[in-house]
């Protein structure tokens, strides 16, 4: 028996597995894109300034 033999379940669930794989891949790309946008659009100087002001006011 070949080590590459495909089990029947792989054939039966090919569509499902492929679909879920594509969705997971899309989700990863979306999270990466969101992270990039958040990092490049948030002004961290404002956040830092805010934090310093809060500490000073205490």
């Amino acid at each position: 028996m070949s080590i590459r033999a495909e089990h029947e379940i792989h054939t039966r669930r090919r569509g499902r597995n492929l679909g879920i794989g594509l969705m997971l891949g899309g989700f990863v790309i979306l999270v990466m894109a969101l992270t990039y946008v958040k990092i490049t659009t948030i002004d961290f100087n404002d956040l830092k300034g805010g934090a310093i002001q809060t500490q000073e006011s205490n």
Binding site: E8, T11, R12, R13, R14, G15, R16
Partner: peptide, 12 residues
């Protein structure tokens, strides 16, 4: 391909 060996329908 949408049925199991026992003949049950498998959700797609």
């Amino acid at each position: 391909v949408t049925t199991t060996p026992s003949g049950e329908y498998e959700a797609q």
